[in-house]
């Protein structure tokens, strides 16, 4: 008698969690000195969704996602992740939150005094505090295989190309299986073929690990491949949102200008 009950309960949980809002941003403001970078940012991201953020350089896209992980403290507005206000968190809560969020930096940010293997082990031993070397090895190999760089495992970051660094950076963030991924220009500075590979990889990882993602990019090919929804940022505000196709056909000159 009890069995089916449990089942439906679980199913309900799953279906509600599907449409659940994991990142809720409303009226976010951030200034540096007299320079107002974020004026009024609002965005809701649902679980499992890929949201692409477009915008000219220097508009504050990086600043916005840095607020989400608590690297920068906003001056106003609300910002909740998994239903909790980020600015109200203490050190310990912030750390717990950061474990659940992966952040891919614009330059990959590999630790250049460590080999690829040590780079990947670092979050496992320092953040998840894993002790079992067999499990650690296995997870390192699995995630490196996922980004197609298994043979670079003992190389130093300085021996890798730009595209390889980005992929290792991606592997290092994915290795802890984050629920949210924030990508800061994952394909900038790469050739079209490698860019496409990375974009496909992002999509694949979303499927495999069921992550929710915010992807900042200037690369329309990357946006086309990865986006469930797109928003455009200009002068500290999100001015439009819609699917790739919708924005491509937009009547506004400014929006269309991103597409060619």
């Amino acid at each position: 008698m009890e069995e089916p009950d449990k089942h439906t309960e679980q199913k309900n949980k799953l279906s509600t969690s599907k449409g659940e809002i994991v990142i809720h941003i409303k009226g976010l403001k951030k200034s540096f000195g007299s320079k107002e970078v974020l004026k009024n940012i609002s965005l809701d991201v649902k679980r499992g969704e890929n949201v692409v953020v477009l915008g000219k350089s220097g508009q504050g896209k990086s600043v916005a996602i840095q607020c989400i992980v608590g690297m920068l403290v906003p001056d106003g507005g609300t910002l909740t992740v998994f239903g909790e206000e980020v600015s109200g968190m203490n050190e310990k809560q912030l750390k717990q939150l950061r474990i659940r969020i992966g952040f891919l930096f614009q330059g990959g940010a590999l630790y250049d005094s460590m080999t690829v293997r040590e780079n990947l082990e670092f979050p496992l031993t320092r953040v998840l505090k894993l002790k079992d070397q067999v499990e650690i090895d296995q997870r390192v190999k699995e995630v490196l295989d996922g980004v197609g760089l298994l043979d670079a495992i003992d190389k130093m970051p300085s021996d890798l190309s730009g595209g390889m660094r980005k992929r290792v950076g991606l592997a290092r963030t994915l290795i802890v299986k984050p629920e949210i991924m924030l990508y800061d220009e994952p394909t900038t500075g790469l050739d079209p073929i490698t860019s496409r590979e990375i974009s496909e990889l992002i999509l694949q990882m979303q499927k495999k690990y069921k992550t929710t993602s915010i992807i900042i990019t200037h690369d329309m090919e990357c946006a086309r491949i990865t986006a469930d929804r797109m928003v455009i940022m200009n002068e500290g505000e999100f001015i439009t949102e819609g699917s790739f196709e919708e924005l491509k056909k937009s009547k506004e000159q400014f929006v269309r200008s991103f597409f060619n």
Partner: peptide, 19 residues
């Protein structure tokens, strides 16, 4: 050394990863 780790966002990456 730490300055270049800061510039290349390695310190930020470490902090944001929860380490």
């Amino acid at each position: 050394e730490l300055g270049s780790m800061k510039v290349t966002e390695q310190i930020d990456a470490m902090e944001v990863s929860g380490a």
